[in-house]
């Protein structure tokens, strides 16, 4: 390591926040679509929403909230010099991410087996509002699932950096930014869950 290596902690973190704002606008667009179509087809949205399995949604909410806790704790652990503990907490986060995706796989499989997927004959026979609901459901949860996958890969990458001593108690901004990304994934789910699984 070069002794004069310039590090801008605030700049690096602010850059990450700016990126998160673009993600906010991206998912914001999908939430606007949801809001507009909910106001247009309220009855169809309630009928279609009742078909989602609340158990999957609730389980995934618990998994994501807990994984957010793990990431937050891992930053504290690293900064206290407890590198091994920090790595274990990150491993638990990645495990949570995979568990979330396994749940999502079973949830989607069940829906697809019931003929509920975009442009399916079953959905085309139904009211247009229900088709819109399920298209938005697949688009939004699919894009969110992709973020979960990317988040897990980023965390594994940070774990490699920690093992190589490139990220350590005095230089943790990469872990911090990976954590910020992971919390964003959690934040989006916090809104996605009630909107899709709890519409009444």
């Amino acid at each position: 390591m070069t002794p004069h290596l310039h590090k801008d902690y605030v700049g690096a973190k602010f850059g990450m926040w700016l990126f998160l704002f673009t993600e906010l606008i991206l998912f914001g667009g999908l939430f606007i679509l949801y809001a507009v179509y909910l106001s247009r087809y309220p009855a169809a949205f309630i009928a279609a929403g009742a078909e989602l399995d609340l158990r999957f949604g609730a389980a995934n909410t618990l998994i994501l909230l807990t994984s957010s806790l793990f990431v937050a704790l891992s930053i504290t652990a690293l900064r206290l010099g407890k590198t091994r503990q920090s790595l274990w907490l990150l491993a638990a986060t990645v495990a949570s991410a995979l568990l979330f995706l396994v749940n999502k796989f079973f949830e989607w499989s069940a829906k697809i087996q019931h003929g509920l997927y975009p442009a399916s004959p079953e959905l085309q026979a139904r009211e247009i509002g229900e088709t819109v609901y399920f298209n938005l459901y697949y688009l939004t949860t699919g894009l969110h699932g992709l973020h979960v996958l990317i988040g897990a890969v980023v965390i594994v990458w940070v774990m490699v950096f920690i093992r190589q001593q490139k990220v350590h108690r005095d230089d943790w901004v990469i872990l911090e930014n990976a954590g910020l990304y992971w919390h964003l994934v959690d934040l989006i789910w916090i809104f996605l869950f009630p909107l899709y699984y709890l519409v009444l």
């Binding site: 957010s68 990431v71 954590g179 910020l180 919390h183 959690d186 934040l187 916090i190 809104f191």
Partner: peptide, 11 residues
């Protein structure tokens, strides 16, 4: 409320 907690403390 949940988001506010996540943003304020976790982030």
């Amino acid at each position: 409320c949940k988001s506010a907690l996540v943003v304020a403390i976790f982030m």
